[in-house]
């Protein structure tokens, strides 16, 4: 099978948490950073420490994430960080509006000509890039462990218990169950087409040709799934799906003391960020004195 869920039972405190707690806590952290628009590294760093602690408590093995982390680092450092450093965009307007000393200039010109620009890299842009990278990692580190540490069979129940309807929750649950099946169908189709001489790695020709040549991989899997769907519908209708409340919900999803602690922490983080920003004017973007002094 090409894809199996990377989930494994690890007997960690993170896995002993109710899945709803983790999802709600994640939402609170996102809201805390985005609703009051927090760009102050003094506030972001403690949140980063909380995220990092929860990530480390997940005890995910290096072999599981070694292929994902490079993607993350490329995205955050080179795309987000570099964009912040060069343009100062992606954050509050004060990054570029406030006067800030120029550290150096990056010439972006047509080769062998003087046509182009010299982009000034200011102290403000440099501090902003650091802030932006930390802010993104704070949010990302709460999510990366979820597929590795949350039982896929419990997603539907978790969403139902969070207020989603039976049908939406069951759709969620069913999607997770179908996933490995379709991934296996995709692998079989790919192997079968390769056996017929289809070279996946050498998709030659123009864009249209390339996309059209993907059809032998996509069509069989999609069409087979539509046939499977009719059989599943018949089976569910025969069992009177949708006529009465569902009985498949688990009863073992209960909040424990540790869940209330984390939920309380999430609420506290959100309220604290709002109070700091709107009550005391703390949390907006600024360049600290020590960083400025490094370059002046």
């Amino acid at each position: 099978m090409l894809v199996t869920w990377k989930y494994r039972r690890r007997n960690t405190i993170i896995q002993r948490l109710d899945p709803r707690t983790r999802l709600v806590f994640f939402v609170f952290v996102i809201l805390a950073l985005t609703i009051p628009d927090i760009w102050d590294l003094r506030i972001i760093l403690p949140l980063f420490a909380v995220s990092l602690t929860l990530f480390l408590l997940s005890r995910i093995e290096w072999k599981d994430i070694r292929r994902i982390l490079p993607y993350m680092f490329i995205l955050v450092f080179f795309i987000v960080g570099l964009n912040g450093l060069l343009s100062g965009r992606g954050g509050p307007s004060s990054v570029t509006n406030l006067p800030s000393p120029v550290v150096f200039e990056v010439p972006i010109k047509i080769p062998f000509t003087d046509i182009g620009w010299d982009i000034p890299i200011t102290v403000s842009k440099m501090w902003f890039a650091i802030t932006q990278i930390t802010r993104m990692f704070t949010m990302a580190m709460l999510v990366i462990p979820i597929p590795y540490t949350m039982d896929p069979n419990i997603y539907g129940t978790a969403f139902k218990r969070m207020g989603a309807s039976d049908k939406v929750s069951f759709t969620m649950d069913l999607a997770f169950r179908f996933l490995p099946t379709f991934a296996r169908d995709f692998t079989i189709t790919m192997d079968a087409q390769r056996a017929r001489g289809y070279e996946l790695e050498k998709l030659k020709g123009g864009l249209v040709g390339r996309l059209q040549r993907l059809a032998p991989l996509i069509i069989p899997v999609v069409m087979q799934s539509t046939v499977t769907g009719e059989e599943v519908i018949d089976a569910m209708d025969l069992r009177a799906f949708g006529t009465k409340p569902r009985t498949w919900l688990r009863d073992n999803l209960k909040y424990a003391g540790r869940d209330y602690v984390l939920l309380g922490l999430g609420v506290a983080i959100f309220i604290l960020c709002c109070v700091l920003k709107w009550g005391f004017g703390i949390g907006g973007y600024f360049v600290p004195e020590f960083f400025l002094n490094l370059f002046v």
Partner: peptide, 19 residues
């Protein structure tokens, strides 16, 4: 929004995820 939508919603989601 009945059984058909639930099943094909799930199938579409799984296919979209895999692809």
């Amino acid at each position: 929004f009945g059984t058909r939508q639930v099943v094909y919603g799930a199938i579409g989601a799984a296919l979209y995820g895999v692809f």
